[in-house]
């Protein structure tokens, strides 16, 4: 039952926010916004203490599939980038204290690097520019959101899996 509730919340929100992303990117400076798929995964998948081992990979699969509708990037690339980011976030999160805003921000920025790097790699393969300022702005954006919305208390409640 609890699993049903979790999916009922995570999937529709991911579907609509990922679908909204192209429209938001089209605004001035929209290209600097963090990747919605990655932010949603960071919100729905706890950094530590995941009860079900299948919830994170299945959610990564769904968000990657949603992303394939709004981006030319291969779903394989999205899945690999998201997965690496989540693994890195779990590892880095265990190394530092979540009570410091700066450390939480650092965790978010560092964790966003694999996924954003995958996007940059695909851009390079297709000969499309992916400026460094866009790269870092997206990583910093994820870091800020992670630092603001995942305070120590929120890490132990809410949409835990």
């Amino acid at each position: 039952m609890r699993r049903d509730i979790r999916w009922r919340v995570a999937l529709p929100i991911s579907f609509f926010l990922v679908a909204l992303q192209p429209a938001l990117r089209a605004f001035p400076a929209g290209s600097f916004l963090p990747d919605f798929g990655l932010v949603l995964l960071f919100v729905f998948i706890p950094a530590v203490g995941s009860r079900s081992p299948w919830f994170p990979p299945i959610l990564v699969f769904w968000v990657g599939a949603f992303r394939a509708g709004v981006s030319a990037i291969s779903p394989l690339s999205s899945w690999a980038g998201f997965g690496l980011s989540i693994l890195l976030r779990r590892w880095v999160h265990r190394q530092v204290s979540p009570h410091s805003f700066f450390l939480r921000f650092s965790v978010g920025v560092i964790s966003a690097i694999p996924s954003t790097s995958m996007d940059a790699l695909v851009s390079a393969q297709w000969g499309v520019a992916f400026p460094m300022e866009v790269f870092w702005a997206r990583c910093l954006g994820v870091g800020l959101l992670w630092a603001f919305f995942t305070r120590p208390s929120s890490l132990r409640r809410g949409l835990r899996s």
Partner: peptide, 20 residues
């Protein structure tokens, strides 16, 4: 992924049209 991606694309296009 196409059966999932195509509905997302339609919703994205609708949102795009709505915001722009």
């Amino acid at each position: 992924v196409a059966p999932v991606a195509i509905p997302v694309a339609y919703v994205g296009a609708w949102a795009f049209q709505w915001l722009h």
